[in-house]
């Protein structure tokens, strides 16, 4: 009878650890030909959501260089060349960190990017028409924008590629875990089209 009562349980038989919910999600513009791009610019700073406290920003700053180094090494392994914003880069990269729950990934969040790339007043958007969805946990987001083919009349900058590395934050302070930073390589690994000559 004990077995039959156990058979009524609706809870799954597997166990779920915090890191089991980590995910690496990438999207790209399907019509993009990445071989037409060679140079990219990435700001030294990383955007954090407006809810982040000064303490959290200070905490994350310890990881900024690690994050940027990982991105740069991956981009350079794909034959892209890092340049300054004044060198008319083909691509603009942006890195953001979300540390608070219930944050919806939307256009408005990316208002700051064009200014970083030297195009204040322009809009940055995802031409594939869908967002990466909503999520309620921490995330590290990497964006790659097309600065070579800007729609000057409408002041629009197309996204070419975006990566969202998300997971449940295991520390009580709501700070993004280093665990997620370690998955930057996977974002590039699952994007083999991100390659130039």
């Amino acid at each position: 009878m004990g077995l039959m009562i156990a058979s009524c349980s609706k809870y799954p038989t597997y166990t779920v650890n915090t890191s089991d919910l980590d995910m690496v999600w990438t999207q790209y513009k399907e019509t993009a030909d990445f071989t037409q791009y060679k140079t990219y610019y990435i700001p030294d700073s990383i955007l954090m959501d407006s809810n982040a406290t000064a303490e959290e920003i200070a905490y994350m700053q310890e990881y900024y260089q690690t994050i940027l180094d990982k991105i740069n090494s991956n981009m350079q392994a794909r034959n892209f060349v890092k340049v300054d914003s004044s060198d008319n880069p083909d691509l603009g990269m942006g890195v953001s960190i979300i540390t608070r729950t219930t944050y919806v990934y939307s256009y408005s969040w990316w208002y700051y990017y064009p200014g970083y790339w030297g195009y204040p007043g322009y809009s940055y958007y995802y031409p594939w028409g869908t967002y990466m969805g909503s999520y309620e946990e921490g995330a590290l987001i990497i964006d790659l924008a097309d600065l070579k083919n800007i729609d000057q009349s409408n002041k629009l900058i197309d996204a070419l590629w975006a990566a969202m590395i998300g997971g449940v934050l295991s520390n009580n302070d709501g700070l993004i875990d280093k665990r997620l930073i370690d998955q930057i390589d996977q974002a590039f690994e699952q994007s083999p089209y991100l390659l130039t000559n």
């Binding site: 799954p12 690496v24 999600w25 990438t26 594939w128 699952q190």
Partner: peptide, 25 residues
């Protein structure tokens, strides 16, 4: 009731690629 926890796998759908563990109930 059927349950499955996969390994961390990479799945492509249109212009999306997601690497994660799948929990299937």
């Amino acid at each position: 009731a059927f349950f499955k926890k996969t390994d961390r796998i990479t799945v492509e759908y249109n212009n999306n690629t997601i690497t994660a563990i799948h929990f299937r109930d």
